[in-house]
Write a protein that binds this DNA or RNA. Structure first.
Lengths: 194, 194
DNA sequence: CCGTTAGCATAACGATTGTTATGCTAACTA
DNA sequence: TAGTTAGCATAACAATCGTTATGCTAACGG
C-alpha cells in the first residue's frame, strides 16, 4: 500500500471553517467563497466532506465537541473560587460579549435555525442537553438540591440565552443588563438557605 | 390619468408570503418557489418589492405590525380574568406550541439570524422592544411596581423565548416544562406582596 | 369611449450554485 | 527505489439564482 490518510486534516479544516463561519454565518454558506477564504479550491471541501449537507453536519458535530471541551476547561463546578452564582452569570456575560462574541453569534444563528426545524441531526440538541447538565453541576456545587438542579439550570440557560438574543438584536444595554442583574439575583436566591 | 394602484395588494401578498415562510423558513428563501406557491410568476415579487432585500425588509415590517396587532387583541393587560401571572405564562406556552407553532418557529429563525447580525433594519429590534413593553404592562396590571416592571418583563420574555428554543430543539418536554413551571412560580412570586 | 397604466406572464440575461471527471504532484509503504 | 494513493487544482457540468426587457390584458379616469 501507499500514502495513508492524515486523520488530523479534517479537524484542521473544520477549525478554519468555523473561524470563517463565525464571521460570515452559516445560513448563506457557499462553498466557493469559503474555499477561497481557506486558500483552496472547492474540491477540498467536497473531497473531505462528501457533500454540502454532510459538511454542515460535520460542522455541527465539530462545534458540539468544541463546546464540550470548552465547558470542561472552565474553572469547574467547584465553588468557583468564592464567586456567587450571580457573579458567575455576570462574568460569563462579559466574556461572551467580548472575546467570544463571534462564536456566540454563530451559535445563536444555529440555535434559531434549529428551533425553526431548518437544521437536522443530533448535534444541536446534544449541545443544549450538555449545557443544561453542565450548569446543573454548577448549581449542585453551589448547594442547589439535586431535585431542583436540572430544572433550574434549564431555566437559567434559557433566560441567559434569551437575554443575549435581546441584547444582540436591540442593543438596549441598559434594559437588558438590568434584567441580567435580576437574573443574577434570582440565581443567588437559589443558593441562600431559606 | 388612468388605473390607480391598489394599496391593499401588497398587504395581501405579504400575508400569503408569511404563510409560505412559516412552512419553508426565510433563510433559504428563493423567489421562484415562493412565486410558484403563490400561483404567480416571480415578476409579481420584483414588481411590488423592488428587490429580494427589500422584499425581506417588507416581510419583517409586516411581521412587526402583525405581532403588534396580535398583542393588542389579547385579553389585555387587565388582570386577565383572575389568572395569575404564572397561569398566563402556561396558557401562552400551550397556545404558542399548538395553533401558533409555525409562526413561532419562523420568529425564532428570524431572531436568531438577527442576533447573529445577519438581518438588518429596524423591525426585529422594534418587535422585541414592543414585546418587552407589552409584558411590562401586564406585570404592572398584576401589581409589579413601576420601577421593576420593564426589567422583570425583559427577563420573563428572555426566559420564555429561551425555553421555547430549548424545547423546539431538544424536544425534551419533561425537562423544559419543569423549568417553565419554575419560571411561572418565579413570576407569581413577583406579584405576591412580601 | 378613449387613453393610460397597473398588473402580470413569458422569456431571457449573466452570475452563482453544488457537484464531478480529469490529471498532476508529492508523500508514503513495501 | 518503485508503485500506490492521498491531496489538491483546474475546468466543466447542469441547475438555479436574482433581475430585467418586452408585450399583452383588463381596469380605471377623463
Amino acid at each position: 500500500m501507499a500514502r495513508p490518510r492524515d486523520p488530523q486534516r479534517r479537524e484542521e479544516l473544520l477549525d478554519a471553517i468555523v473561524g470563517y463561519l463565525a464571521e460570515h454565518g452559516i445560513a448563506q454558506l457557499s462553498l466557493r467563497p469559503l474555499a477561497k477564504a481557506l486558500g483552496h479550491s472547492t474540491y477540498v471541501l467536497t473531497h473531505h466532506f462528501a457533500s454540502k449537507d454532510e459538511l454542515i453536519s460535520a460542522i455541527l458535530a465539530h462545534l458540539d465537541q468544541r463546546q464540550r471541551g470548552r465547558v470542561g476547561a472552565l474553572p469547574g463546578p467547584g465553588t468557583s473560587g468564592g464567586l456567587s452564582l450571580g457573579d458567575v452569570v455576570r462574568a460569563s456575560w462579559a466574556w461572551h460579549l467580548s472575546e467570544d462574541l463571534p462564536i456566540v453569534r454563530l451559535l445563536h444563528e444555529i440555535e434559531g435555525l434549529s428551533a425553526a426545524g431548518r437544521l437536522s441531526g443530533p448535534y444541536v440538541p446534544k449541545m443544549l442537553g450538555d449545557r443544561a447538565e453542565f450548569v446543573a453541576d454548577v448549581l449542585r456545587a453551589h448547594g442547589v438540591p439535586e431535585e431542583a438542579a436540572l430544572r433550574k439550570a434549564t431555566l437559567l440557560n434559557a433566560a441567559y440565552a434569551g437575554l443575549q438574543i435581546d441584547y444582540l438584536t436591540t442593543g438596549d444595554k441598559e434594559r437588558v443588563e438590568a434584567a441580567l442583574d435580576e437574573l443574577a439575583g434570582t440565581a443567588d436566591s437559589w443558593t441562600s438557605r431559606e
